[in-house]
Amino acid sequence: MIRHGSCSCGQVRYQVSGEPSRVGICHCTSCRQETGSTFTAFAVWPRSAFQSSGDFATWSGRSFCPKCGSRLFALRDDEAEIKIGTLENAPTNFTPQYELWTWRREHWLRPVDGARQFQRDPDE
């Protein structure tokens, strides 16, 4: 399966192939500030399953469209972390397998059923 995504203005496009290796939600301050929301939802693919076109900018490991500002992905040597909201076909069939930084989760948000809960990052 190939999934496509893009920024709001369409200058940056990407695709990922296959299924993600994991799906999560993060409530940390950095993710909240980056998205302007109370959390970010993401899916992670092997870096080899990711392709992009168009010029994007990167700050602190996070890539975005320099024209419209859409936050898109974080690329590492081995992985591509995609912001689920930038995928074209919503809703997706993804269910978060874990939540990070749950001590920062808003009190009115409930834990995702069946997802592992981490007060911080899993390795801390």
Results as ranks from 00 to 15, higher is better:
34 E>K: 11
3 R>C: 13
76 R>S: 14
59 W>L: 11
48 S>C: 04
63 S>Y: 00
53 S>A: 09
101 W>N: 15
82 I>E: 04
73 F>C: 14
102 T>F: 14
88 E>T: 11
50 F>Y: 09
45 W>D: 00
115 A>H: 02
108 W>V: 03
84 I>A: 01
116 R>I: 09
122 P>H: 10
113 D>W: 15
35 T>W: 11
16 V>W: 05
118 F>V: 02
71 R>P: 05
9 C>V: 01
115 A>W: 02
80 A>Y: 06
9 C>I: 03
70 S>M: 03
106 E>T: 14
107 H>E: 13
77 D>L: 12
112 V>T: 12
20 P>Y: 06
22 R>N: 10
25 I>Y: 03
33 Q>H: 09
77 D>T: 13
97 Q>N: 01
75 L>F: 11
27 H>Y: 11
115 A>V: 02
4 H>Q: 12
11 Q>V: 15
88 E>L: 10
15 Q>Y: 06
98 Y>P: 07
114 G>M: 08
28 C>T: 02
81 E>T: 10
118 F>K: 04
18 G>D: 09
50 F>H: 03
3 R>H: 12
108 W>H: 03
75 L>G: 07
52 S>W: 03
90 A>M: 15
70 S>F: 01
79 E>A: 07
67 K>V: 15
80 A>P: 12
74 A>I: 09
95 T>N: 10
28 C>F: 00
44 V>R: 00
107 H>V: 14
80 A>V: 14
100 L>S: 04
1 M>S: 02
78 D>M: 09
72 L>Q: 03
6 S>F: 01
2 I>S: 15
123 D>F: 13
46 P>F: 05
41 A>G: 04
36 G>E: 08
109 L>C: 00
112 V>L: 07
31 C>Q: 05
33 Q>K: 15
119 Q>A: 15
100 L>P: 07
82 I>H: 02
66 P>H: 04
75 L>K: 06
45 W>G: 00
41 A>N: 01
60 S>M: 06
73 F>H: 08
12 V>W: 04
96 P>A: 13
53 S>P: 01
96 P>H: 10
38 T>F: 05
102 T>I: 08
118 F>D: 05
34 E>M: 15
71 R>N: 06
108 W>Y: 10
87 L>I: 05
39 F>A: 07
65 C>Y: 01
33 Q>V: 07
21 S>M: 14
78 D>W: 12
58 T>A: 03
43 A>T: 07
33 Q>T: 06
81 E>S: 12
17 S>Q: 09
63 S>I: 06
109 L>S: 00
30 S>Y: 12
73 F>S: 07
62 R>I: 15
33 Q>C: 06
113 D>N: 14
106 E>Q: 15
91 P>W: 15
83 K>P: 04
75 L>R: 09
6 S>L: 08
60 S>N: 06
4 H>W: 08
88 E>W: 13
84 I>S: 02
12 V>Q: 05
107 H>W: 11
21 S>N: 10
35 T>P: 07
78 D>G: 04
106 E>P: 08
8 S>V: 08
78 D>L: 11
31 C>M: 07
102 T>P: 12
113 D>L: 12
26 C>N: 00
26 C>H: 00
113 D>T: 10
33 Q>P: 00
33 Q>D: 06
101 W>Y: 10
52 S>T: 08
84 I>P: 02
86 T>H: 04
107 H>K: 11
35 T>Y: 10
110 R>M: 09
44 V>Y: 01
